[in-house]
């Protein structure tokens, strides 16, 4: 092997950089991910269901909220009919926060673990936190 003095250190530096996600969390316990759904308000509900299905909300809630904002702000329509034909009032503070009062555990944990910074709170006030 020629130029081992340059090639081997170069290769080692490359391997260290490329395996960064593998050794970065070595020795640490698995991080707590995910979110907390349960709130006192949800406990009291008879039918525990959101505006749309859970799988749709998990993947696409941001689009729903964006559509809601456009409906209200641009078209001044305040009712939303979901896939199942049920009617909801379009309101973040009344409809969403009526049940999801735990912003820190429901919104923020996922958003911060995925580096998402939604600008909901530029206009809306945060829901009052209630403890279980």
């Amino acid at each position: 092997m020629y130029d081992a003095g340059k090639i081997i250190p170069g290769l080692i530096i490359f391997l260290i950089l490329i395996t960064f996600p593998l050794w970065y969390s070595l020795g640490q316990s698995a991080p707590v991910l995910g979110y907390q759904v349960e709130t006192p308000e949800i406990e009291q509900l008879e039918e525990k269901e959101c505006v749309e299905s859970v799988s749709y909300m998990r993947a696409s809630h941001m689009r729903l909220l964006d559509d809601w904002r456009n409906e209200v702000v641009r078209n001044s329509r305040r009712t939303y009919i979901n896939n199942a034909g049920k009617t909801y009032e379009i309101s973040l503070e009344a409809t969403c926060f009526g049940c999801h009062t735990n912003k820190a555990d429901f919104c923020d944990t996922c958003h911060s673990s995925l580096n998402v910074e939604p600008d909901c709170w530029n206009c809306h006030s945060e829901p009052k936190e209630s403890q279980l």
Partner: peptide
């Protein structure tokens, strides 16, 4: 199509931590 990023993150972290 949008997917559940929370589930993606849980999976990717578990992969990187070899569990």
């Amino acid at each position: 199509l949008r997917v559940d990023l929370g589930a993606v993150k849980e999976f990717a972290v578990s992969l990187a931590m070899f569990s």
